[in-house]
């Protein structure tokens, strides 16, 4: 008998604070599995965001810095310039990365910072209680879009990965999803590739992970996977490699 699945070593042995069924936990595990696979946790510095993943600094067995809202790519830039031989990653949500931190993520990609960005897109602000994000779908309800996001006045969702992929400095951009095991395994390969490319000094890499927020979507965890991600997010946020150079 061999162990075919166990908790990765780079994931701290503490309970995650996330709501039941929140796929942040899966995404954390994928990052930890990548650090284990590449045997680099002791040479890694992660940057936690503001948002539901604000406590990410407690969950990874590596050095961590907690950034201000949206500033993780700037903080990671500072770390990487001091520690160019270390692995540096940010873990950011859609409010953090796609709203308040749009300048920081865009400029870090433009500069071609040799860092890895894990971007969790669940189309809503989770920690603050379900407000509209730039990634919220048209018609999707949020506490600050109680009638559903309106095209006129609130616009349509921003596709950050497509935008970042237009920048020469970004060399690997892929969008993946966590709505079933096959896709989780694809996401696992993408995350590991993003980290491996950083170690190979191939430049800026970003993996956008479509994720759930059952609590603020008002759905059960299983419904959240099937109803929102599979049926509603995938048509707006198509999966696949947007750039690989």
């Amino acid at each position: 008998m061999a162990v075919v699945f166990e908790k990765p070593k780079a994931l701290a042995n503490v309970p995650l604070h996330y709501c039941p069924g929140c796929t942040h936990g899966i995404a954390h595990r994928l990052v930890a599995q990548a650090l284990d696979a590449l045997d680099c946790a002791d040479n890694t510095i992660g940057v936690a965001p503001v948002g539901c993943a604000v406590f990410a600094y407690d969950y990874f067995n590596c050095d961590m810095q907690e950034a201000a809202h949206g500033r993780a790519p700037a903080v990671a830039t500072g770390i990487k310039r001091v520690c160019p031989e270390s692995v540096v990653f940010t873990y950011q949500g859609d409010g953090d990365l796609a709203a308040i931190g749009l300048a920081e993520i865009t400029s870090a990609a433009m500069r071609g910072e040799n860092i890895t960005v894990i971007f969790i897109n669940n189309a809503i602000y989770g920690m603050t209680g379900g407000q509209m994000a730039p990634t919220t779908l048209v018609g999707q309800k949020a506490t600050t879009a109680p009638y559903g996001r309106q095209l006129v006045g609130q616009g349509s969702p921003i596709r950050v990965s497509e935008m970042i992929a237009t920048l020469d400095g970004a060399t690997y951009v892929e969008r993946v999803s966590l709505h079933d095991a096959a896709n989780v395994n694809r996401a696992k390969r993408a995350v590991e590739k993003a980290f491996r490319r950083q170690i190979e000094k191939k430049g800026f890499s970003m993996v956008e992970i479509l994720s759930t927020c059952p609590t603020n979507w008002g759905l059960s965890p299983v419904e959240a996977l099937n109803y929102i991600i599979k049926e509603q997010m995938l048509p707006v946020y198509p999966l696949g490699v947007l750039k690989e150079e």
Binding site: V75, A76, C83
Partner: peptide, 9 residues
Amino acid sequence: NMVYGAAGA
């Protein structure tokens, strides 16, 4: 914030 990261390192 780059200062934060670099000085934190």
